[in-house]
Simulated scan of single mutants.
Amino acid sequence: MMIRAREVGRLVELRHIPPPDVSELDEGAAASLIEFLDTIPNAVMCVDLRRATVLPPHLADRLVALMEGIRGHFERCADVMSPAQATAHMQIERISRASADPARRVFTDPHAAIRWLDEVLNPEERARLRIFLLGPGQVF
Rank of each mutant, 00 (worst) to 15 (best):
L55S: 08
E124C: 06
R128Y: 01
S99K: 02
I95H: 00
E125L: 10
P18W: 04
P102S: 07
R15Q: 14
R10A: 05
T108K: 06
A127T: 11
V54E: 08
T108I: 15
A65S: 12
I34L: 09
P20F: 14
H89D: 14
P110A: 08
A100P: 01
V54F: 02
G69K: 00
A98W: 03
R50D: 10
M45A: 14
A5N: 14
I17P: 02
L63W: 08
R94K: 10
S23K: 12
T39D: 15
E93A: 13
I92C: 01
G72R: 01
T39M: 14
I40P: 05
I114E: 11
R51V: 13
T87E: 14
T39K: 15
L33E: 11
A78Q: 02
P57E: 12
P19F: 09
I70S: 05
S32I: 01
I114P: 11
H89Q: 12
E7Q: 13
R4P: 05
V12N: 00
M90E: 15
M90F: 13
A113M: 09
V12L: 12
S96D: 07
P56N: 13
M67K: 11
D61I: 10
L121N: 00
S82H: 05
S82D: 14
H16C: 10
L55Q: 04
L49A: 15
